[in-house]
Amino acid sequence: MIDLLRNLDRRWIFLAMLLAVSIPILAQQSFPERPTKTVLDVFNYIEGLPEGSNILLSFDFGPSSDGELEPIATAVVRHCCLKRHKMFFMTLYPDGVPLPERTIKSVIEQEFESYNFKYGEDYINLGFNNAEELVIIVMGTDIKKMFPTDIEKKPLDGFPIAENITSLEDMDLIFTITTGYPGMKEWVQYGSSPLGVKLAVGSTAVQAPEAYPYLPDQMLGLLAAIKGAAEYEAALADKYPAFRDPAKNQGIKRMAPQFWAHLLIIGLIVLGNVVYFADRFQGARR
């Protein structure tokens, strides 16, 4: 048995991972989620804001992290729509430009079609600016200096939503969905902390540990990867029963493959250590 494990072809491990991930997807398995404090803090803050509050949604990621972060974007935008908040979309990533547009289409224009949200009045897509953290620094005093136009190059001054907006201080919440640089740290250092604007973060799993030192003073809350999205969806479903259907909740759906993948990894670590200690034991006996 030990010999079999010692010489295990890694293709068997790949096959096991493929099955662990694909079977729950095909079987449409899902597990219940209970929102944790870091997620509930964000949910309750957005829920408690008066209707029509200004929320800046910065999609600071590209397609490489889309699988982890898209459910966060969908859940938060869905909540903003339910509360009829004003949404300002932007990105600091050159390959992230189409991602806000996709969420706008799927959530605001399709799922919430009956709410009759109007572009330029209820939401706007500011597009991309390449000046990295300087975008945040300058937006702290003048948003229109960094984004004089929307994504279609139409002057921002022509949109009713931008009439009373000067700087980041006019935002009731900054929500960054982030994968690295520029992202979470830059928004804390140059955006929320110096200006005293509330900041919430949706991040990839590998980046999440870096966010904890900022909680809860410099950062309102944290949605860490798929788990964070699933918890937010659970909070949304608790408050709004229309969102209890698991088919609508990508985060909850994606937690099932994660459940089995985590168990497989734990099993593999245990088996690897069995081989390691068996070898050590045999070496000591010789």
Partner: peptide
């Protein structure tokens, strides 16, 4: 672009599993 880069990052799960078996030891 999107499918290619998504696939590349999805492959990480397989390599993480393989590394968990071979390298993560209580030494």
């Amino acid at each position: 672009y999107q499918p290619l880069i998504g696939t590349m990052f999805a492959l990480l799960a397989f390599y993480v599993a393989s590394a968990a078996f071979r390298a993560f030891r209580a030494k």
